[in-house]
Design a protein around this nucleic acid. Structure first.
Length: 828
RNA sequence: GCCGGAGUGGCGGAAUUGGUAGACGCAAGGGACUUAAAAUCCCUCGUGGGCAACUGCGUACCGGUUCGAGUCCGGUCUCCGGCACCA
């Protein structure tokens, strides 16, 4: 054994040993209780960053801990390897996206291995490989068959810089999530996945996500955004047309003083004579800065009071939500209020604030949006809002003017991207047959290699004649291939399912014909993921899509669970100098440098120690040195005692041996059992590794101070050290393995059983009793553990200092907290 | 604007059920070893007063409940995150 701790000498050695022994390969024994531990797979951008180190360190501790507890653990890793940066690199440097991507994967895989992460690499998938994306295409065709994938023309978010469509979720504050360009609205033919088919289920199942952070569940709920309201038809005076509006406030119907319609609304085209003005307002559609309206030249009839009110085309009314038209009640909706003010439209109050004497006719300075009592509302006057809503809806339905409906904020998922480096959408356009799906036997539709990346115009796939030309699978006639590729979020929506199927180099995949097959179906053994770990930035996007996809896969009969992730841990960001690490801020810490300088054990230990996993972690170079010092102290205590520890062993069966043990030895033995309890509980309690590590530091501090007096002390010390090594091995596996073998044990500490504590041996003989007077600390006293409350009280009252402090005052009450505290309540 | 979350030493953070506030680590100061430095080890370390024993104050702020509040309740301020014409 070397005198000094030198991670460079031991870490590569053990990484090689683990790989050769195949220690982290998943067993197929399905009689064992399983644990599926998953970290979000990275985009292979070139190098891992500290966020990855933290994410994967957390996952690795959990995987190793669960293995030591006897679980059959699936702990896979792969690559989210389609996406824009590869294509941008191709444009900029002339490297093919494939080459760039696979080289990055190669390098990053090496980095992950240098961290000592216990992955089963036989399960590795790369989403850009045809063996993976063929199943994207397969799922797409299944969804097409079921009507869950469809094509429609619509206004989409368009990033002019990336020259592609963005999903709503990828638009952050009106800007592109990737490049920060301002997103514009553009009308395009797009493929959509019908996530709204599952809107109700995705929402109601949120309440079952008990193992998710409440914050994330709430964000999902808000994103889905269910609202109940009513659709009402407004006849357009002098025509046969009617406009259908959606409102959640039927109780304000009598206050509707105009109707607004979205510019792309089909009726707008029909009704507005001034094409130029209509085009102008259409160009302003979706602009948040200003509300703009165009009088259509027509009037609507309010069905409850037959009032004739103007119909406007308004740029703030969304076509994609509700019916694309609204009734405007300026008195009770702030947006309508602003619009009315601008275009000088009447404001009529129909809801009065309850329990407040209304100043009749008083000018409103803003809309009153709360519930209240209906006024100026015909037969409904006097009803409270909630009751009024029910009654108005009943009236509307009875007269056949409309119906009660549920709306969701959630839209269908537009997946078309005008890009090369993604999954080709497996569809062919035939001149005579129309849209035809590529038959399963022709999958995968492979990306052509021979394309040029100019960065100009649309997708490079449009330039590849060999790709574009295709025979129609139905009639054999001339046809053209779809050139759009899929949003990369499709790839990551089911990769956790792929891991369950893939084993080594062989074939893997899905077949509906094999559904409900054998109990040994690996999907139903491994799914759902027991613990998922990743950044909170995916709280809506990726997690919602994955929940959707899992349900699609379920409804195909391939899998039986509905929710993919039982427990979710959203880890905080790694920050430095108060800001997220980024190249532009120049505050990045390079994991390669860190591993080279301090070793991966130290890197892992610090990321786990400096903060609990769900919180942001403030990076500290000095803190890293502290972690390194701690590992050195463990090394030193083994090195110093190596000779005297040889041949000793702690008689685990014979508890009675504590008789005759030295005071220091007994104390260390007690501390060891307490530490096992603390570390185990801290891991179980929301993975609070920081306090678990603090407890291990305390234990090491105590054993460093022990001078063994006899063989019994030596055997306790050996027990304490071996226990420490087992407890710390999930955090810092290399040093644990090295010291474990240095003490004469067979290699394979990660195969040891997780230590268990002995409650008896962890008990103190004496405990400290706190004495308070009127709730203020007045003294402390050592009393025998387990002393009765009466005795504790007596001891406290008889303490000379306390007796003196009480003086002659009256004791009103004495409160005793067993084994901890006595509070003497004094009068006067 | 709406919906969440958080405010504890010089710093990162502990305090698990209402019961000793500040575990553990970092930084700082002092000491030992050394020709010297690094490394290592030991001591001090919330703050005010006092030579000291001791004592006052202290978990963003104001108030409440309680024998007892960082923890529970009401209000205020600040910071962070999400959503934002969703009718």
């Amino acid at each position: 054994m070397e005198e000094r701790y030198d991670p460079k000498k031991i870490e590569p050695k053990w990484q090689k040993y683990w790989a050769e022994k195949g220690l982290y390969k998943t067993k197929t024994a399905e009689s064992l209780k399983k644990f599926y531990c998953l970290e979000m797979f990275p985009y292979p951008s070139g190098k891992i960053h500290m966020g990855h180190v933290r994410n994967y360190a957390i996952g690795d501790v959990i995987a190793r801990y669960k293995r030591m507890q006897g679980y059959n653990v699936l702990h896979p890793m792969g690559w989210d390897s389609f996406g824009l940066p590869a294509e941008n690199a191709a444009i900029k440097h002339g490297v093919h996206p494939s080459k760039w991507t696979y080289e990055n994967i190669e390098y990053m895989k090496g980095q992950l291995n240098k961290l000592g992460l216990s992955y089963d690499w036989d399960r590795e998938v790369a989403t850009c490989s045809p063996e993976y994306y063929r199943w994207n295409q397969w799922f797409f065709i299944r969804m097409l068959e079921k009507g869950l994938a469809y094509r429609k023309s619509s206004y989409v978010n368009w990033c002019p810089s990336c020259a592609t469509v963005l999903a709503n979720e990828q638009v952050i504050d009106t800007k592109c999530w990737r490049c920060d360009s301002v997103v514009v609205q553009k009308e395009l033919d797009q493929w959509f996945l019908k996530i709204t088919h599952y809107a109700e289920e995705l929402l109601s199942a949120c309440d079952d996500l008990k193992g998710w952070p409440e914050k994330v569940v709430l964000m999902q709920k808000n994103w889905i955004g269910k609202s109940t309201g009513v659709e009402i038809d407004f006849r357009i005076d002098g025509t046969d047309e009617k406009v259908r509006v959606y409102t959640t406030r039927p109780d304000t119907l009598f206050g509707a003083t105009f109707v607004c319609m979205s510019p792309p609304h089909p009726l707008a085209q029909k009704l507005v004579a001034d094409r130029e003005a209509l085009e102008e307002i259409t160009a302003q559609y979706g602009k948040v800065e200003e509300k703009l309206g165009l009088f259509s030249g027509h009037y609507c009839i309010n069905p409850v009071n037959n009032e004739r009110i103007p119909l406007y085309i308004a740029n703030f009314v969304l076509m994609e939500y509700g019916t694309g038209a609204i009734m405007s009640v300026p008195a009770h909706d702030q947006r309508d209020f602003e619009f009315a003010l601008k275009y000088n439209l009447p404001v009529r109050r129909v809801i009065a604030q309850e329990a407040v004497a209304e100043a009749q006719g008083a000018q409103l300075s803003e809309a009153y949006e709360d519930d209240g009592v209906m006024v100026n509302s015909g037969d409904f006057t006097g009803l409270k809002s909630p009751e009024g809503r029910v009654k108005v809806v009943a009236f509307i339905e009875e007269k056949g003017l409309g119906k009660k409906v549920v709306n969701f904020r959630l839209r269908d998922w537009g997946i078309s991207r005008q890009r090369y480096w993604g999954t080709p959408i497996p569809v062919i356009y035939c001149e005579s047959c129309g849209i035809v799906a590529v038959p399963d036997k022709d999958l995968p539709v492979i990306l052509p290699e021979d394309v040029k990346f100019t960065g100009r115009g649309g997708s490079p796939l449009k330039e590849s004649e060999a790709f574009l030309q295709a025979a129609c699978p139905k009639c054999g006639g001339r046809a053209r291939r779809e050139t759009d590729t899929m949003d990369t979020f499709v790839d990551s929506s089911w990769y956790f399912i792929a891991y369950c199927l893939k084993q080594g180099k062989g074939e893997w995949g899905f077949e509906i014909s094999e559904r409900n097959n054998k109990i040994t179906n690996p999907l139903n053994y491994w799914m759902p993921v027991d613990q998922y770990i990743g950044g909170v930035e995916h709280a809506v996007l990726h997690l919602l899509y994955s929940r959707f996809f899992t349900r699609v896969v379920r409804d195909l009969g391939i899998i039986s669970c509905s929710e993919p992730f039982t427990n979710l841990l959203t880890q905080g960001m790694v920050i430095k100098d108060g800001a997220k690490m980024s190249k532009s801020k120049g505050n990045v810490v390079d994991p390669d440098y860190l591993i080279d300088r301090y070793g991966s054990d130290t890197s892992r230990l610090f990321s786990l120690f400096a903060a609990p996993p769900e919180r942001d972690l403030e990076w500290s170079d000095k803190g890293v040195e502290g972690a390194y010092r701690f590992l050195s102290r463990i090394w030193n205590v083994v090195y110093r005692n190596l000779n005297s520890l040889q041949g000793t062993s702690y008689p685990t069966a014979g508890k009675a041996d504590i008789k005759g043990i030295s005071e220091a030895g007994r104390s260390l033995l007690r501390k060891t059992h307490k530490t096992v309890r603390k570390v185990t509980n801290d891991i179980e309690r929301e993975y609070h590794f920081n306090t678990a590590i603090a407890a291990l530091m305390e234990l090491v501090n105590e054993m460093t101070g022990l001078e063994p007096a006899d063989d019994l002390d030596n055997s306790v010390l050996r027990f304490a050290i071996e226990t420490t090594l087992c407890l710390i091995s999930p955090f810092t596996p290399h040093i644990a393995e090295e010291l474990w073998t240095a003490m004469g044990n067979e290699p394979g500490i990660s195969g040891q059983r997780w230590p268990v504590w002995d409650e008896e041996l962890s008990k103190e003989d004496e405990v400290e009793l706190v004495i308070q007077m009127n709730g203020k600390l007045k003294g402390k006293l050592m009393i025998p553990a387990g002393a009765a409350d009466e005795d504790a009280k007596k001891l406290a009252l008889n303490d000379p200092k306390i007796a003196e402090a009480i003086g002659g005052r009256e004791i009103k009450k004495v409160i005793v907290v067993k084994g901890r505290l006595v509070n003497i309540v004094l009068g006067g």
